[in-house]
């Protein structure tokens, strides 16, 4: 589904040049449930932007569903975003002058679906999120958890293959976080590739694969085997394998990136 090969990205300002991503290699299969963790400045948001075709990269390759995402025109990028990817954001990013249903329906506007039809579809998605009764409320009348569920419904309405969530629970309390994570987990179970950027261990723990970023490189990765009967977390090695621990709990294995 997603293949990154030696991905580099730098930001240039007048004063400084910042090398943010320094050769990222990553394969994410269809249906995977992945979280990306790292301190601020580790490049995780940049990586998410590139995955979401919201930003470009300098070097390397990004294959999305077999298509090379590089040097895309504005229209093509918008097209792939619309077809493939649903976004969920920390600050919900609902349009505040549109009610819940209109917010959910908006992506279909850009797919030229008629108003009547897209509102109907939006209601179905809201229903699935348990928000049918809130369809005609404005965002400022909704709680944080409700807003995020509206945002997820909006991400889902164009039937994306991938959900990209940028700190989806960053603005929520622990109880609501759990609710939202349950929703995302359920979505993942329907076969949608789900990628969550987070700095919360508890959020990452809900996913099956945790990619740790540090200084623009993948520091290490942990993987939880979800095969029936196997409940252990299986470390995954990247460069030079150096397994050291295979305990019952989630295990982190340092990957030797340094020469």
């Amino acid at each position: 589904m997603i293949t990154l090969r030696n991905l580099h990205k730098s930001y240039h300002t007048e004063a400084i040049s910042l090398h943010v991503l320094k050769g990222i290699n990553m394969d994410i299969e269809a249906g995977e449930y992945v979280s990306i963790m790292g301190a601020s400045g580790s490049g995780k948001s940049t990586l998410l932007n590139i995955l979401g075709i919201l930003d470009t990269y300098d070097e390397g390759e990004y294959l999305l569903n077999g298509t090379l995402i590089k040097n895309l025109g504005e229209k093509q990028a918008a097209h792939y975003r619309n077809e493939m990817i649903g976004f969920v954001f920390q600050s919900f990013n609902l349009i505040n002058f549109k009610n819940a249903m209109e917010n959910v329906a908006l992506p279909l506007y850009y797919k030229n679906v008629s108003r009547k039809k897209r509102n109907l579809i939006a209601m179905e998605h809201l229903d699935r999120m348990g928000l049918k009764d809130w369809a005609h409320h404005m965002p400022n009348e909704l709680s944080g958890g409700q807003k995020q569920r509206v945002a997820i419904a909006r991400a889902m309405i164009s039937n994306p293959k991938i959900i990209l969530a940028d700190e989806p629970t960053g603005a929520l309390d622990s109880k609501t976080t759990e609710d939202v994570m349950n929703v995302l987990t359920e979505l993942n179970k329907t076969g949608i590739t789900t990628i969550i950027v987070t700095h919360e261990q508890s959020v990452a723990a809900a996913t099956n694969r945790i990619i740790h970023l540090k200084d623009g490189m993948i520091e290490y990765e942990t993987r939880r085997d979800t095969r029936p009967g196997v409940s252990t977390t299986e470390p995954v090695m990247h460069a030079s394998p150096n397994p050291s621990d295979r305990g019952e709990s989630e295990t982190e294995i340092l990957i030797n990136n340094k020469p």
């Binding site: 229209k75 975003r81 797919k111």
Partner: peptide, 16 residues
């Protein structure tokens, strides 16, 4: 600006 960003993220082409 924010609204424009949201619209772009959910698939609106700039031209639109």
């Amino acid at each position: 600006t924010r609204e424009i960003g949201i619209r772009k993220a959910i698939g609106a082409p700039s031209s639109s």
